[in-house]
């Protein structure tokens, strides 16, 4: 069995751990709002939209990060616009989701090299995370967190008391869309490491567990970050040791955290 401590000397493993830690923090903070708003499905959909973008970028021969971020933002606006005037966002979410998966399938079929490059976006990989990618991840994470910090208070208000917030002058419809954009951005940076199909394990697992255990908002955010870092760190380490997909470990640890939280309270 390869030794993790020795492996830490490899720059690519350092990069993977850095990237995973960044996305874990962002996912935990965004996820706490996602859980409160009951928006797991939209989160799931936005990460798969990112997959279509990544597949498209690979086909076009541009860096996948551009496709990921462009498609996720576009998807967030589209989802927001479609959900705006419908009773529930369930149906638009499902259809936008499958449309992007279908588009991803198309790019997958058109890309000559039928290899692991694109499918690794579905299931995640810790191999080949470049230093530059960590930098992009870091900048995008800062953007997402900055937007979230600005809208945090009205977003919380609109989430728990929508009518009262509206009467206090909060533009709840605009907040809905901006929040989806933040979710899209967070999903876009999480996809390359965790995989499009598994992003929301890292997004809602730690957050749902923390929400269940904490009664104060600040504590819930803090605990979610800690649980997220544990899931991401252990996931990368176990993937390194076993050579199994990192998404499997992260989703298993996230589910375990939630189950334990439910058992405690």
């Amino acid at each position: 069995m390869p030794d993790l401590a020795a492996g830490l000397a490899h720059p690519w493993l350092q990069n993977a751990l850095c990237g995973a830690a960044i996305v874990a923090v962002v996912a935990a903070i965004v996820g706490t709002f996602v859980v409160m708003r009951g928006a797991s499905f939209a989160t799931h959909a936005l990460s798969q939209i990112g997959f279509a973008g990544a597949a498209g970028a690979v086909y076009a021969g541009v860096p996948p990060a551009f496709g990921l971020i462009a498609f996720s933002l576009l998807g967030a606006f589209g989802l927001g616009a479609l959900s705006l005037r419908s009773r529930s966002s369930d149906v638009p979410t499902a259809l936008v989701l499958v449309a992007s998966l279908g588009t991803g399938a198309l790019f997958l079929a058109l890309t000559d090299d039928f290899g692991s490059d694109v499918t690794s976006f579905l299931f995640g990989t810790i191999v080949g995370v470049a230093r530059a990618q960590v930098a992009v991840t870091f900048v995008a994470a800062l953007c997402a967190l900055a937007v979230l910090a600005v809208i945090a208070r009205p977003l919380l208000f609109a989430t728990v008391a929508r009518d009262a917030a509206r009467s206090a002058g909060v533009d709840v419809a605009a907040l809905d869309v901006v929040f989806l954009v933040v979710v899209g951005l967070a999903a876009a940076i999480t996809v390359p490491i965790v995989g499009a199909l598994l992003v929301f394990a890292l997004t809602i697992g730690p957050a749902a567990a923390a929400s269940r255990l904490c009664t104060r908002p600040a504590a819930a955010f803090a605990l979610a970050i800690v649980l997220g870092l544990i899931a991401a760190g252990c996931g990368v380490a176990l993937a390194y040791e076993t050579d199994w997909p990192v998404g499997f470990f992260i989703s298993a640890i996230a589910l375990l955290e939630y189950v334990v939280a439910r058992a405690i309270r």
Partner: peptide
């Protein structure tokens, strides 16, 4: 919503 999501995520992980 949350429980469906997490079971789904785990199943996808296992599928992977």
């Amino acid at each position: 919503d949350v429980a469906t999501g997490l079971v789904l995520a785990f199943a996808l992980g296992a599928g992977a």
